[in-house]
Design a protein around this nucleic acid. Structure first.
Lengths: 96, 96
DNA sequence: AAATTATATGAACAGATGTTCATGTATCAA
DNA sequence: TTGATACATGAACATCTGTTCATATAATTT
């Protein structure tokens, strides 16, 4: 079997891993995997980090297809977009 | 349960993910998971990339505890150091 | 001894990433 | 309508990453 046949899958995998390969981001995913959805403020409190930093991460992870965002009133509820990210996370935590 | 109790594990996980979040590196791991060990030249041919680029990746992945290296004559045989990386890879390819 | 092969290393650089700070915008409460 | 709250955005910057090129080193072959 030829390596090049994996090309696209590898590209996709590397892309997703890059979007997750960060402590803050892993922490976001862990929190969201436990609670379905959370507001930015809740996450700021969970992670004990700056609002703007979190916002940057959230915006980017959303742009990269990892997270969903639902607005309601003043709040913005983030959630995990694709179930498979949770499987991946579990595997990462198990094997790392 | 407190998020901070996961701190070290998260750090480790992020560290490992960073060491893998790259197409070339994933490809290296795939090749090595199929063949136990390979020389740099074999990998250069598999991946069709520059020797020095590969060498940089291999050196760094070794420094980060992902790969092993065994010298014999002119050749250098690289292999996967920790079985768990293979499990992780399989999971990544399955979920991504 | 000289040439060849296999691999590593270092400099240099572009581009990506992570972070902070200041500020913007929208919604809600007083 | 003013102020507070929730969140996003953009500039600025330091650091990290990926890549190439040139060169070094060590083992092997001629």
């Amino acid at each position: 079997m030829n390596v090049l046949s994996h090309r696209e899958q590898l590209e996709k995998a590397a892309y997703t891993l890059k979007a997750l390969a960060n402590e803050t981001r892993l922490c976001i995913v862990i929190q969201l995997s436990k609670h379905d959805e959370k507001t930015v403020t809740e996450l700021v409190n969970d992670l004990n980090c700056e609002q703007s930093l979190l916002s940057h991460h959230l915006t980017d992870m959303r742009a990269k297809g990892i997270l969903n965002c639902r607005k309601s009133g003043k709040n913005c509820y983030y959630s995990i977009k694709d179930e498979r990210v949770i499987q991946l996370l579990e595997c990462i935590l198990k094997q790392c």
